[in-house]
Amino acid sequence: MAPTAGPPLIPPAELQSFSEHLASSKRILALLGAGLSASSGLPTFRGAGGLWRTHDATVLATPESFEQDPGLVWQFYSYRRHMALKAQPNQAHFALAALAEKMPGFMTLSQNVDGLSQRAGHARAQLQLLHGSLFDVKCTSFYCDFVEQNFADPIVPALELPIDESDLTSDEARHAMSNALNAKKQSKELDISDEKVALPELAERDLPHCPKCKEGLLRPGVVWFGEALPRKVLHTIDDFVTSSSKIDLILVIGTSARVYPAAGYVDIARAKGARVAVINTDASDAPAGGMRKGDWFFRGDAARIVPELFKSVIGEIEEPSGRL
């Protein structure tokens, strides 16, 4: 007896109604969150592994922490850069990039800093990074305006990981990291399970410095807690929203969209007539305003669902062979 086919990834009636609306839409917003990158194997911001399990990421991600201990903060972000570079854009990233190419009236607002959308070829004019990027660096000197994109791993030799945890089992990683880091003479100790693991104390001279002014420290180009969202990004989004009286659709992918200002864009789109389509693994992760008649909730892995939703417009997704 042939095996019984499982239920379709997306209920046919819902897929048809969404596809028809997508095909007729002229102006579309997409709001992206960490759930989009989960399919690429990236831990969430608060879920960084290894020796960072005993740190509160929200404490490290502040201007005050960088001023007090830039070496520790840079080690945290060097780890995150390394993990993001080991990950690859998934099918949803490529599908969003393809939709941007097909639809000039499509604007994506990403809360992710991992660079995967850019590496998938998403047109930068249609991709606004609300929280910045791990791969932008900028000078901290008040008198210097240096900013550049930088994918070096590590960005300076002192930030090289003693060992790549992702290539080992958890027990192997814990012992290898412990042995490698404890060889450092100057260190801070952190508890990981029942072991003491050392973090090297880095001198400021060994951290990334500005090549323009030669004096200021470079910092990750992300938005830290207590900092304003990038003004240029907000102006670009405002221009897109206000340039027309109508928005047809807002896609909410891999985020609950319950925290402002991100949640506010759902409200703004609704006020301009948009229908809402949520793609998330958790059925309880609806936007702050809840779901309304005519909205769609597609539960599951964004990497599988998004390409299927867009197929009627973009066709089948083919990943490029050469990827960063």
Rank of each mutant, 00 (worst) to 15 (best):
G273Y: 10
K185R: 11
E195V: 09
A23H: 13
S312L: 09
R205E: 14
F151L: 14
A173S: 11
P63K: 02
L29M: 11
L207N: 00
L109V: 09
A30Q: 05
P70V: 03
Y77Q: 00
D136N: 11
V259K: 00
K138N: 07
N112L: 03
G294N: 10
D194E: 14
L109E: 05
L99C: 04
P287E: 09
L168D: 06
K185Q: 13
L29N: 06
H175A: 13
P8Q: 02
P157G: 04
D145A: 08
W224D: 05
G121D: 00
I247C: 08
A57E: 00
N179L: 14
E318V: 13
Q126L: 01
A57T: 01
G35A: 00
S37L: 03
L202F: 01
T4R: 15
L15E: 06
S37G: 04
A257V: 06
H93M: 02
R323S: 13
K196D: 12
A38S: 13
L32I: 14
A13T: 14
G33H: 00
E67F: 15
D145K: 09
S187V: 11
D301T: 07
S19Y: 13
L99F: 04
S243N: 07
I279R: 09
L96I: 08
V233T: 06
E227Y: 05
E227A: 05
S19E: 15
S17Q: 10
F310E: 08
K232V: 14
G264K: 04
F225H: 03
S40L: 03
P287Q: 07
R53Y: 07
K184N: 14
D248V: 06
Y77I: 00
S39P: 07
L9W: 07
